[in-house]
């Protein structure tokens, strides 16, 4: 009988191996648990996870992660999310949440935590944001077809409070535009993703032509894309391409009224933290203020816009 069992075992290898390959190809079988993950979750959870209940162990660890979050134990929280995503690599929620904890919650904690000296706080803040980005990028490598993860990366890379942590702003916005482009390539992506790609492109100095072409294409697609930000950027990009443009008249044309154009441009003028270009906006505002009869003393241009986020100032260097 033993010989029969072994022979049957050899026979079934001929279909077990192709079936395993098929299931892996269809992404129905998760990658193997590495030794590090097995050690981190302990023997009992390891046995449960190996018994085909990886998502259940991930659910339990997610509860534990919530406790670590409330206790502000950021290092342990990051390790927990590494483990959780090893167990359930195709659940977007874990990638988004793990990244959010590091790039937003841990970073904000370091920004405000007065117990550390300024230099260390700044370094902890910077490394948390970078770790959040790296985590999200790992999620994207595991789930390249998930547009929401690409969009989440784009969102992080255009967050005015995070950009200084990444060094060069142009590189950061270029990476964001690329993330939004990859999100937009997915068939189920929502329409805002292409607008967000434009918002990122418009902030890169040497890609304004590309941004203008996209802004015109989006504008031509219809009212759905006629958001105040897109209309402001279209005006700015057109003004940069043609410095002789009468921006006041063009703004009224784009917004369909003096008051609407004025309100939107005032708002755009004050969005300095987000580093949007403002070419031609001052001229447009002056022109519309004259039409609306706003005295020069009450001009929006008289009040200084808020300064962009500056880590040196925030950390008291």
């Amino acid at each position: 009988m033993a010989a029969g069992l072994l022979a049957a075992g050899a026979l079934r290898m001929t279909w077990e191996i192709p079936l395993t390959r098929l299931l892996r190809g269809q992404e129905l079988l998760p990658p193997r648990l590495d030794t590090g993950t097995r050690e981190r979750i302990g023997q009992t959870s390891s046995a449960v996870a190996l018994g085909g209940l990886r998502t259940l162990v991930a659910t339990f660890l997610n509860l534990r992660a919530h406790t670590r979050f409330t206790e502000q134990r950021w290092g342990e929280l990051a390790l927990l999310f590494d483990t959780i995503t090893d167990l359930a690599p195709r659940t977007r929620y874990y990638w988004e949440t793990g990244s959010w904890h590091q790039a937003y919650n841990a970073a904000s904690h370091h920004l405000n935590d007065s117990k550390l000296p300024p230099l260390r706080r700044r370094e902890a803040w910077r490394s948390s944001i970078r770790a959040g980005r790296a985590f999200l990028e790992r999620g994207i490598r595991n789930n390249p077809d998930d547009w929401r993860l690409h969009a989440a990366l784009g969102f992080l890379l255009t967050d005015p409070n995070k950009v200084p942590a990444f060094g060069d702003a142009d590189d950061c916005f270029a990476a964001a535009a690329d993330a939004y482009r990859r999100a937009a390539e997915q068939p189920d992506a929502l329409g805002y993703v292409r607008r967000s790609m434009l918002y990122a492109l418009a902030r890169i100095d040497d890609r304004q032509d590309e941004a203008l072409a996209l802004a015109r294409a989006l504008h031509a697609e219809g009212a759905r894309n006629h958001t105040p930000t897109l209309l402001c950027l279209l005006l700015v990009l057109e003004s940069r391409a043609d410095p002789r443009l009468d921006t006041g008249r063009r703004a009224i044309e784009l917004f369909g009224g003096e008051r609407r154009a004025y309100d939107a441009l005032c708002n755009h003028w004050r969005r300095t933290r987000e580093r949007f270009p403002v070419d031609g906006v001052a001229a447009a505002l002056r022109s519309i203020e004259a039409r609306l009869g706003i005295p020069e003393s009450e001009s929006i241009l008289k009040s200084p816009p808020p300064a962009p986020f500056d880590p040196d100032q925030a950390f008291g260097n």
Binding site: L29, P30, G52, L53, R54, T55
Partner: peptide
Amino acid sequence: QLFNVIDA
């Protein structure tokens, strides 16, 4: 392991 499609 073949039956671990449950997680997916």
